[in-house]
Amino acid sequence: MRLVIDEVRCKGCNLCTLVCPYRIFKPGTIANRKGILVPVTDRPERCTNCRLQKIYGRTLCGMCQMICPDQAINWVNEEVYEPHRVVVED
């Protein structure tokens, strides 16, 4: 499961940057079309709680999603990582 910020809903309050134990969220620096500095995710794969959600079948930490007043933080399903097959040329 991967964290995503919905740019349409986000109003740039940066509350997510306050609560994340892994400091995944960083305050945004570039204003979007509405002039909002949407926070950016810094290597979201570092969040163990996000990754293990599927195995446990429930939300583990979810602080960022719960505190987001704009309902802008969600998880999307990720494809299982497939290592590239190395093709050895004859």
């Binding site: 309050c13 509350l15 719960m66 505190i67 987001c68 007043p69 309902q71």
Partner: peptide, 11 residues
Amino acid sequence: CAGCGNGTVVN
């Protein structure tokens, strides 16, 4: 508004 806590309570 941005940062208003009401949305959190709704969650």
